[in-house]
């Protein structure tokens, strides 16, 4: 089943044409990696999927994106609801300067959920899913900023999971972390795949190869190649892809 479908997406920052006619589909409960050199458009495309680019004044988009069959840029769609369905984890861990509990419960609270037991249950469940529960269950009311970088990033993941999204967008989630924390995040992605559709932007090709089912290679705003990860890394169809994955540029 098609979970995400993009048809002829073009995007511009002012005069800059940053995404050129991107069309691709992603299946539910898969991990898709976006790779490519800096400025190739992979993050921009990721941010189109939950409309985070809406806040950039000069940004303009053409073409359609459907998630679970719904046109997410339709005028009737409330962007807040979209983002509850399509969660996001950012490059640098960005927990709120509040307690761990408050961080994870935030999404539910802004939906108006006040019941303490519901919140507690959701926080515990999400932290368990993010493989952080055992480390923080006794310090839920400590500041999230007191945690290590890797733990902070997992708080951010738990925070995104707490509102039960169907899709999780990850924008280079491990680029600011040490190797051990990175490994934990990667393990986590493999587990989360069972319940979520995951899209991950990464600079690290080994990481793409390890965690993803399919990989999309972007270059200068074009989608050059999109294929099963194994296929793309072992048998790239395009010369540019080959040059990139073998480290000849980028």
């Amino acid at each position: 089943m098609k979970h995400i479908e993009a048809n002829n997406v073009n995007a511009y920052y002012g005069e800059n044409h940053v995404l050129k006619d991107i069309s691709l589909t992603m299946k539910a409960n898969t991990v898709t990696a976006f790779i490519g050199p800096s400025g190739c458009g992979k993050s921009t495309f990721l941010r189109c999927l939950n409309r985070m680019n809406d806040y950039i004044d000069s940004f303009r988009k053409e073409g359609d994106i459907f998630i679970e069959g719904k046109d997410i840029y339709d005028k009737k769609v409330r962007v807040e609801e979209l983002r509850q369905k399509v969660g996001m984890v950012f490059q640098k861990p960005n927990p709120f300067p509040k307690t761990i509990f408050e961080n994870v419960a935030y999404g539910l609270k802004i939906q108006g959920i006040k019941s303490k037991s519901v919140l507690e249950e959701a926080v515990e469940k999400s932290l368990k899913q993010a493989a952080l529960w055992n480390e923080v269950k006794d310090s839920l009311h400590k500041s999230a900023l007191s945690l290590s970088g890797g733990q902070q990033q997992r708080v951010c993941i738990a925070r995104a999971l707490a509102v039960e999204p169907s899709t999780l967008l990850m924008d280079e989630p491990a680029s600011a972390l040490d190797p051990i924390s990175t490994a934990k995040i990667e393990d986590l992605i493999a587990e989360l795949k069972e319940n979520y559709t995951i899209v991950i932007v990464t600079h690290n090709m080994q990481q793409a190869a390890r965690v993803s089912d399919k990989t999309a290679f972007f270059y200068m705003g074009n989608l050059i190649e999109y294929d099963k990860t194994k296929e793309l890394f072992t048998n790239p169809k395009h010369e540019r892809t080959e040059n990139y994955i073998t480290g000849r540029f980028g």
Binding site: R83, Q84, Y106
Partner: peptide, 25 residues
Amino acid sequence: KSLREASFGMGATKWQTIWYQTLPA
């Protein structure tokens, strides 16, 4: 900016983001 993004990314409205995150910070 990352704080605002985190909140928007969770589906918070502009005012929710200001009230719960930006102003306290």
